[in-house]
Simulated scan of single mutants.
Amino acid sequence: MRRWLIKLRKEQQLTQQQIAAGAHIDRAYYAQIENGTRNPSMTVASRIASYLHINPSLFYSEHLSEPFETALANSPMTIAHCDLELRYTWMFNPYPHFRMDTVIGKRDDELDHELDPNEGTWKLMQLKKQVITEGMSVRTIIPFPLPDGSVRYDVFCQPIYDSDGRIIGAATASLELQS
């Protein structure tokens, strides 16, 4: 079952029929994709993803190559993509203080944090805006205040381009630094 897909559909107040129509597929086929009994082709995944404003790789995230997943799982490294509105379209190895099923489709300031959005949140969002606007990669250290102290991340951010060379978002790789 793709709970993240069901949640995303419900958050956007869409029906299975609306998504199926938007992706030009049969509603029963979409229901099977949502229930996890069928995997969409790359073409169908791309159409659904385009309609929902997400990255199509989400449909295949459970099939990431084992070496990549083994190397990064439980590491202090988080990799993510966002769209032009800074909404997450994909994430691997989410930060410990929020869950994957609450991330997709949301901006950093909309996530369920232990704390309200803080200076670190705003700096991360500003970094993504800068990269998208200027089309240049940026690397910086961003501190995030927590109840028991501050955590710092070394964040590398670069633009994401479509096949026509237009910027469609930003990708970040964030490494938690030891204090």
Results as ranks from 00 to 15, higher is better:
R3Y: 10
K10M: 12
K10L: 11
E11S: 14
Q12Y: 12
Q12V: 09
L14T: 03
L14Y: 09
T15K: 11
Q18C: 12
G22A: 11
G22Y: 08
I25E: 00
D26Y: 02
Q32T: 09
Q32E: 15
N35Y: 02
G36A: 10
G36C: 09
T37D: 02
R38Y: 12
P40Y: 01
M42T: 15
T43S: 14
A45W: 02
S46M: 01
R47F: 05
I48K: 00
I48E: 05
A49C: 05
Y51R: 03
L52A: 00
H53A: 03
P56V: 04
L64V: 02
L64S: 04
S65P: 08
E66T: 15
P67F: 07
F68Q: 03
T70W: 03
A71P: 05
S75H: 13
M77A: 07
A80T: 06
H81D: 05
D83E: 01
L84F: 04
L84Y: 02
E85R: 11
L86C: 06
R87P: 03
R87K: 15
Y88I: 06
T89L: 08
W90Y: 10
W90V: 02
Y95D: 10
F98M: 12
F98H: 09
D101P: 01
T102E: 15
V103G: 04
G105I: 02
K106R: 15
K106Y: 12
R107L: 04
D108C: 10
D109Q: 14
L111S: 01
L111H: 06
D112P: 15
L115Q: 01
L115V: 03
D116C: 11
N118A: 13
N118P: 00
T121P: 02
T121F: 05
L124T: 13
L124H: 15
Q126W: 07
L127R: 06
K128S: 05
K128Y: 00
K129W: 02
K129F: 01
K129I: 06
V131I: 12
V131C: 08
I132C: 04
E134R: 09
E134L: 11
S137Y: 08
S137M: 13
T140V: 00
I142Q: 01
I142K: 04
F144Y: 15
P145F: 09
L146T: 13
P147H: 11
P147F: 11
D148E: 15
G149N: 08
S150D: 15
V151I: 15
D154M: 10
V155Y: 02
Q158N: 13
I160P: 00
S163K: 09
D164K: 13
G165K: 05
R166S: 14
I167N: 08
A173R: 09
E176A: 14
E176H: 12
